[in-house]
């Protein structure tokens, strides 16, 4: 029977738990935002923690653990799950134009508004249609609330680059959502 072991009661992991526990909920949420699957999100967090556990001393030296952990999770996501998704779906250039055709609702909303469920569904669809770089940035900044200075640590990019990328990402997102009635078929960036 693999996967099951007795745990020494005097765990050496107390320090690890103290460091990581306050961030677990946030890590899971981010993982879910990236993967779109509870199962994959839990796996991703598990993999991260298992890799980090032997590096406790390193972790204890990190001054800003929140963005540091977020960067680690994001990198792990790219190295594992996204690479798997890419191989299944084909590669996409993060900043390229229009490589994916998405058919969206063809019925104009007469009131020009939609209820919250529709909005959530359309937002999720629009987010999914963005390039990976744009999607990740919006997830971290607009959904999870990381600041741009924090994101320079997470994405290892200069602030100016991230700011202009965020601007483009939001513009693309708004174009996908289209507050006005949808066209029959929209050509969106992938």
């Amino acid at each position: 029977m693999s996967g099951f072991k007795l745990i020494p009661f005097k765990s050496r992991g107390a320090g690890f738990e103290r460091l990581i526990s306050p961030h677990l909920e946030s890590l899971y949420r981010q993982a879910y935002r990236f993967t779109g699957s509870r199962h994959d999100a839990e796996d991703l967090v598990q993999e991260l923690l298992t890799r980090l556990y032997p590096k406790l001393k390193e972790l204890q030296k990190v001054e800003e653990l929140r963005p540091w952990l977020a960067r680690s999770l994001h990198n792990l996501f790219i190295d594992t799950i996204r690479s798997r998704q890419r191989s299944a779906l084909g590669k996409s250039d993060p900043d390229s134009e229009a490589i994916l055709e998405v058919v969206v609702d063809t019925t104009p909303d007469p009131a020009g508004a939609f209820d919250q469920q529709d909005q959530a569904r359309q937002l999720a669809l629009a987010l999914e249609s963005l390039s990976e770089a744009h999607r990740d940035l919006i997830i971290m900044h607009d959904v999870e609330g990381y600041t741009l200075p924090e994101l320079t640590v997470i994405f290892e990019q200069p602030l100016g680059t991230l700011k202009s990328r965020l601007h483009r990402a939001r513009k693309n997102l708004r174009e996908q959502i289209k507050m006005e009635p949808f066209k029959k078929t929209q050509r969106v960036s992938g």
């Binding site: 677990l24 899971y28 935002r33 509870r38 923690l49 298992t50």
Partner: peptide, 25 residues
């Protein structure tokens, strides 16, 4: 709308489990 996008709760015992598994490799 983005901030309100839902996230399902993790499975029961998630936090304890991932920490325990991390300790055990």
């Amino acid at each position: 709308g983005l901030r309100a996008l839902p996230v399902p709760r993790p499975s029961p015992g998630f936090e304890e489990r991932v920490l325990s598994n991390a300790r055990q490799g």
